[in-house]
């Protein structure tokens, strides 16, 4: 909080709670596994790229809240996040264009059945949908994490870590 009085730098640098840090360290892999499950089951049940991406981004948010911007936040630099969310968009657009290219212009954009994969028509559809979901998931994950970091910390505070 801005209203609180400023403490000494040493007291603020490392004021983590053992319980919070340990629990979040244990929980994060399971949250990410669940997010991958949600992304991959988006074509046949509830869930999908957006929901899985939000859960994946929430795991990063948990990590940064537990360990502070100094210790964990600088592991997710803005340049990497920007690269990630454009990668997702490129995956989406690329798979869509690949459908047109593989069918030599006969199929529509994102008509997954015409991807040249060595499986049946129906399986190609399921696989194409999964590729799209992965792209959406990567974009949403990076955007959610980046929005949270930019809302919670100023640019200068992110670099030097003035606030937990």
């Amino acid at each position: 909080m801005n209203t609180g009085k400023s403490e000494t730098e040493e007291g603020k640098k490392r004021s983590g709670d053992v319980i919070v840090e340990t629990i979040s360290r244990v929980m994060v892999p399971f949250i990410q596994l669940f997010a991958l499950y949600v992304i991959m089951h988006g074509s046949s049940g509830p869930g999908g790229g957006f929901q899985g991406g939000v859960i994946f981004g929430a795991s990063f948010v948990l990590l940064v809240i537990a360990f502070g911007i100094v210790n964990a936040g600088n592991r997710f630099p803005e340049a990497v996040n920007t690269a990630l969310f454009s990668t997702g968009v490129y995956i989406y657009a690329g798979v869509g264009l690949l459908c047109i290219i593989c069918s030599l212009g006969a199929a529509q954009y994102l008509n997954y059945g015409f991807l040249s994969l060595p499986v049946h028509f129906e399986e190609r559809r399921a696989l194409g949908m999964d590729f799209i979901e992965i792209g959406v998931g990567i974009t949403v994950m990076a955007v959610i994490a980046e929005i949270f970091f930019n809302l919670a910390w100023k640019k200068e505070e992110k670099k030097e870590g003035g606030k937990e």
């Binding site: 909080m1 801005n2 209203t3 949600v38 509830p46 869930g47 957006f50 929901q51 939000v54 859960i55 981004g57 929430a58 948010v61 959610i144 929005i147 949270f148 809302l151 919670a152 100023k154």
Partner: peptide, 23 residues
Amino acid sequence: FTEAAVGAGASTAFLIAALSRTV
């Protein structure tokens, strides 16, 4: 599913992040 992930997870995190910069 979407509401549980977004409304209760992401929106809450965003609101608390904004609260930590204001009063």
